[in-house]
């Protein structure tokens, strides 16, 4: 399964719209101007992601995770390199003041969970609008670990060979600082097919032949 040029453009455009909505919410919450852009979107089989990410270097990843059910089945991850997530929280909420390491960690995780939740939620709402059908999300969870642990160890019942992932690269700009993150929508193949056929239908509706 591959994205056509038009599908990629359409998904990228939708991701950018939802990113700007998320940025608006974050700006209001944090009383600061925050900008989120999506420079690139692609679709890969889940096993290919493993090679891609392991080639991308190691390091601990901070991840906010929400499970998807209903019309789309799978999960959504928002990932940042751990040092980037700390930089992000610092840029968003400023210096939290002196704190013991444990309290600071908890504070950072909580803040990251909510930030991730807002970005994932706006994207999911846009997908729900596109699909015109019921989409359900679990509550968000925060996790840290290697890409392998976070992406491939999760739901036991999932067959990686039958999953694809929509990789949405994001750049979050706060306080003159750019932080790169990746939104990964891991979908069962039939859910991805459903999503792409809805995108084609939408393109047809607005007069663009896929």
């Amino acid at each position: 399964m591959k994205l056509s040029e038009l599908q990629r453009d359409a998904l990228g455009e939708m991701a950018n719209i939802s990113a700007s909505r998320a940025a608006k919410q974050l700006s209001a919450l944090l009383g600061d101007s925050i900008d989120i852009t999506v420079p690139r979107v692609e679709l890969l089989p889940l096993p290919a992601l493993r090679e891609r990410l392991s080639a991308d270097g190691d390091g601990t990843i901070a991840c906010v995770y929400q499970a998807l059910s209903g019309v789309l089945q799978g999960r959504v991850h928002l990932m940042f390199h751990n040092r980037d997530s700390k930089a992000l929280i610092h840029a968003l909420v400023g210096d939290a003041g002196p704190m013991l390491a444990d309290a600071l960690r908890e504070y950072e995780h909580e803040a990251m969970t909510e930030v991730g939740n807002i970005i994932i939620a706006t994207f999911a709402a846009m997908l729900a609008d596109l699909l015109g059908a019921e989409l359900r999300l679990s509550l968000p969870y925060y996790n840290e670990g290697s890409v392998e642990e976070l992406m491939f160890n999760l739901p036991a019942a999932e067959d990686a060979a039958l999953m694809v992932v929509v990789v949405i690269e994001t750049v979050l700009r706060a306080a003159q600082r750019d932080v790169s993150g990746t939104l990964m929508v891991v979908l069962k193949v039939h859910s991805a097919e459903e999503l792409l056929s809805r995108i084609d239908a939408m393109l047809q509706q607005i007069g663009v032949e896929a």
């Binding site: 504070y107 969970t113 939620a121 999300l137």
Partner: peptide, 17 residues
């Protein structure tokens, strides 16, 4: 609104709220 209109849950953390 998101919970009612889209079935999307939200967490409002103590850290930020």
């Amino acid at each position: 609104e998101q919970a009612i209109d889209y079935n999307i849950p939200h967490v409002l953390s103590q850290a930020l709220n």
